[in-house]
């Protein structure tokens, strides 16, 4: 997702870098768009990064 330039055609801003924002950003880059992922905390990951396992398969969350 590299360094931001001042003007990029075809870019999308994703506000919030939890699992939803990350997935949207990943899909958009795959679909050919530049993404600004704007997250208010110092790291992306959101609440999912705080979870241990996930329901119902008990897969690791990180």
């Amino acid at each position: 997702m590299g360094k931001a330039m001042n003007h990029r055609e075809g870019s999308v801003m994703v506000l919030g870098g939890g699992i939803a924002g990350i997935q949207a950003a990943l899909d958009l880059t795959e679909l050919g768009f530049y993404v600004y992922l704007v997250e208010k905390s110092p790291a992306v990951g959101g609440v999912m990064a705080q979870l241990d396992k996930t329901f119902p398969t008990n897969d690791c969350s990180l």
């Binding site: 990029r8 075809g10 999308v12 699992i19 990350i22 050919g32 768009f33």
Partner: peptide, 20 residues
């Protein structure tokens, strides 16, 4: 999220690939 990406992608299909 994937669905939202497809909606955003559809609205900007003219400029797809220009910023990457």
């Amino acid at each position: 999220s994937s669905a939202a990406a497809s909606l955003a992608a559809a609205s900007l299909k003219q400029v797809r690939g220009r910023g990457v």
